[in-house]
């Protein structure tokens, strides 16, 4: 077993060029790699010097470089919108020192099943920017569905439209720090006590995540009526396997409880037309 060799490219093009080496692996923060191990890795391409550590807010659009750490993302978004869904979710990911090390790009590349990132990114309609063989900008759901996008390619960043919608995030764990059994992201907007816009994503389900489009459709354009919400939440199909918090039935119940709670919070009267 030969030991892998490290490379420290200084621009994106040379990093992508290095993908032609035998058994390459990108290194961002390193936490994912240490979990993955080094089996079948001959060359490690370090991404620290690519200047992908940036955050931009322009034309009501937020762009974040792939090498930005979770704590840097939080710090940046706090300057724009304290009530951001991404702040709520990333503040709960890992621990303080881990958030200093985990990068947006690394997290997207490994997409660990307990990820606190993908729920909010789906809810926020984020897009993933990729350079290399599959150069392009991919809607997050497409990016998740199709792992081959990462072949000979490098995630350089994400972008998403800035919105002032109300939001809600819930992370189901046994202790505060602990990997999420499921996460729940809700974004909504109301006008004259009518649901104008709504996006609901639950991660940790059997298929990694569920975007509850059926429920969204049933509620959009309807008056804010929590009895009606409750009826529809109860009839929504959620697919969980048993997890450390309990049986699939229990987790389903827990998720529905917090889903309804979240909807109530997002559509409280105070939040009208803010």
């Amino acid at each position: 077993m030969s030991e892998p060799k490290w490379y420290y490219p200084t621009d994106v093009d040379s990093a992508i060029e290095l993908l032609n080496l035998n058994e390459p692996l990108f290194h961002a923060g390193g936490t994912g790699i240490l979990m993955r191990g080094f089996l079948g890795v001959s060359n490690i391409i370090d991404l620290q010097n690519l200047k992908l550590n940036y955050t931009i807010c322009q034309n009501k659009n937020i762009t974040i470089g792939a090498m930005t750490s979770f704590s840097q993302v939080i710090k940046f978004i706090k300057t724009i919108n304290l009530n951001s869904l991404l702040i709520k979710s990333l503040s709960r990911a890992g621990t303080t020192p881990l958030r200093n090390r985990i990068t947006l790009g690394g997290s997207l590349a490994f997409l660990p099943p307990w990820s606190d990132l993908i729920g909010p990114l789906i809810a926020l309609n984020a897009k993933v920017e990729v350079k290399g063989l599959n150069q392009g900008i991919y809607p997050i759901q497409e990016f998740i569905r199709n792992p081959s996008i990462q072949n000979k390619s490098l995630i350089t960043g994400i972008n998403y439209p800035l919105s002032d919608y109300s939001n809600f995030y819930h992370r189901a764990t046994l202790t505060q720090v602990g990997f999420a059994n499921f996460t729940l992201s809700i974004i909504g907007k109301q006008k004259s006590r009518t649901v104008e816009n709504l996006k609901i994503v639950i991660t940790g389900t059997k298929n990694r995540y569920q975007n509850l489009t059926d429920l969204e459709q049933k509620l959009i354009d309807r008056p804010v009526d929590f009895n009606y919400f409750e009826k529809n939440v109860n009839s929504t199909q959620l697919d969980f396997s048993a997890k450390e918090l309990g049986s699939s039935e229990y987790i389903t119940r827990l998720a529905k409880y917090h889903l309804l709670n979240g909807l109530q919070q997002v559509f409280t009267e105070e939040k009208e037309d803010k």
Partner: peptide, 15 residues
Amino acid sequence: QNANFKYYHLFRTPD
């Protein structure tokens, strides 16, 4: 099956 601090949950400061 949970021989690590990931799945064996000790109380931490936020708890």
